[in-house]
């Protein structure tokens, strides 16, 4: 794994990727930093700078992850890695950690900026550190999603574009709050649709109609019971669901200064989930 990590880091720095990454990050954070903090004098770095620049992930994450696995498939070097005495898990983790290291580098930049700020203004250090941590965790989660997408595609360009689109959508999701219906029944319908989708997937994977039917039965039963017993869960249900899933929302909490452990856990487990899916996807190619 260390070997793959080193190779990937070398590759980042020999191609332009690492430099472009830092350049873009410095530019984006630098502009906000200069205007909001240095010019206007706001000391709360995290609240004002980080909260506003999370959109930059839409470009930075594809830049780092698009080549990770799709490139190997394009150049047929995956034949080398998958026939070497190394596990797929090591390969995926090595690559992911290389990307995460660059992200950590970006965090150092943030720390540096906050440090500069502290020379002029009283900086709210706990809040700032919480914000930087949140930014990093958000980044880790998005990198994992990017890695997974890269493992699905054979073309690194396509991987990059798809990652871009998905992260963009994720960022835009909170805007839906205003248009969502508030009544509980719509949340029910939504959960019902999810149960149906799960049942279909189970049927496709296992081929057993009985398992699918069982899923529907259990799901519908549970749903109905919950609705009858705890109707207040379903009020504003859709909004609640979306806000639970929403990465940006959780990130904003961090920026406001509160280090929410459950959100941290959420980010890390999402990252872990997508990495697991990446390993699964790459391994399963052997059977195609």
């Amino acid at each position: 794994m260390i070997l793959i990590y080193q190779k990937e880091m070398k590759s980042y720095f020999h191609s332009l990727t690492a430099y472009l990454f830092f350049a873009l990050f410095l530019a984006a954070s630098g502009i906000y930093f200069s205007v909001i903090c240095l010019n206007k004098g706001y000391g709360d770095y995290a609240r004002y700078v980080l909260a506003n620049i999370s959109f930059v992930y839409i470009v930075l994450v594809p830049m780092l992850t698009m080549r990770l696995l799709a490139w190997e498939r394009e150049q047929k070097t995956d034949q080398l890695l998958l026939t070497a005495p190394i596990s797929v898990r090591s390969v995926v983790l090595g690559k992911y950690l290389a990307a995460a290291s660059l992200l950590a580098g970006a965090m150092l930049v943030c720390l540096a900026e906050a440090g500069i700020l502290s020379a002029y203004v009283q900086v709210n250090w706990p809040g700032t550190l919480a914000g930087i941590a949140g930014f990093f965790l958000l980044g880790l989660c998005l990198l994992a999603i990017g890695t997974f997408i890269s493992s699905c595609m054979t073309n690194s360009m396509a991987a990059g574009t798809l990652t871009f689109s998905i992260i963009l959508l994720l960022m835009l999701l909170p805007n839906l709050y205003e248009v969502l219906p508030e009544r509980g029944r719509y949340a029910c319908i939504f959960v019902g649709v999810l149960i149906g989708a799960a049942a279909t997937w189970i049927y496709l994977v296992t081929g057993s109609g009985r398992a699918a039917a069982a899923t529907i039965a259990l799901g519908a039963g549970g749903l109905l019971a919950a609705y009858l017993q705890f109707p207040e869960w379903f009020d504003q249900g859709l909004a609640k669901i979306i806000s639970w899933c929403s990465l940006s929302e959780r990130f904003q909490e961090f920026c406001q200064g509160s280090f929410n452990v459950s959100s941290a856990f959420f980010f890390l487990s999402m990252a872990a989930l997508f990495l697991y899916m990446t390993v699964w996807e790459t391994e399963s190619r052997r059977w195609f």
Partner: peptide, 26 residues
Amino acid sequence: YLPETPPLYDDMTVEEYLDFIGRLKG
């Protein structure tokens, strides 16, 4: 294993590449 298309990393030198493979193989 030598596949039909040799699995080479174009951005490495020959020595780096063989060193990488050497480490990979233990």
